[in-house]
Design a protein around this nucleic acid. Structure first.
Lengths: 115, 115
DNA sequence: TGAACATATACCGATATGGGAATATGTCAA
DNA sequence: TTGACATATTCCCATATCGGTATATGTTCA
């Protein structure tokens, strides 16, 4: 097996920076492909393809409106990512605390060595 | 440019399911490569390689201890991911609310149509 | 119907991946 | 020093990606 396809799950889909930018933009509401193109300055085919990936993993939904297609965010698809990452929140807080403690100790030592 | 290397940033690094499992396991504390191999049943070279990726993006740190190498979680590296995803939290809550509202309305309508 | 517009798809090339097996490096212990 | 152990690295292959360009599909309007 090679690297998993980008459509394998939300984790793979959001690994691409441009797709994250598109998702960010779609927080403003339903937008057409052209809107995304103008906002991001990415090529139109690229935008279509990225939106296709996002749709396949359920991070956006589409709706036809005349000759345009309106994409909207489906943020719930990010829930698994949020859940997984959140399980680590307390760890980086902890390590921050530990680092902080270490730094303070070092400062104490330096004070002792100075005078 | 092709797909970004897995070592490009934490987003790419955690796209691989096995790497997420390894990170999960490392929440228990500092562990040797062999520990990870036994816990995950992944091949030893694979574990070494995955740990290498995680180290390059700063999600784990290593320390030599005799003939073993002890890896420990550096959860702070996940902060960017958490921050980015958290910006969408209110959206999935919102859409959930909206969905909820719709469902309730439907139920109301059904009640009206029944009697 | 035909032209203009909006979007999707096909094709190409360079690149990196991840698993597996074999092997190299490094370290301890007798 | 030699052998056993722990880990890292190399090589191979099948696979998918992403950007770019060109083109196809689909829709509206005159």
């Amino acid at each position: 097996m090679a690297r998993r396809p980008t459509t394998f799950d939300p984790f793979n889909a959001i690994a691409e920076p441009r797709r994250r930018r598109i998702l960010n933009f779609l927080r403003r509401g339903e937008r057409s492909v052209g809107d995304v193109v103008r906002a991001t300055h990415f090529g139109q085919p690229q935008v279509s393809k990225h939106l296709g990936v996002l749709r396949k993993v359920g991070l956006v939904a589409v709706r036809g409106s005349g000759r345009r297609r309106l994409y909207r965010l489906n943020a719930r698809g990010l829930k698994p990512v949020h859940q997984w990452v959140s399980a680590f929140e307390r760890f980086w807080n902890e390590s921050f605390d530990r680092l902080d403690a270490c730094l303070k100790e070092l400062q104490q030592q330096e004070k002792k060595n100075e005078p």
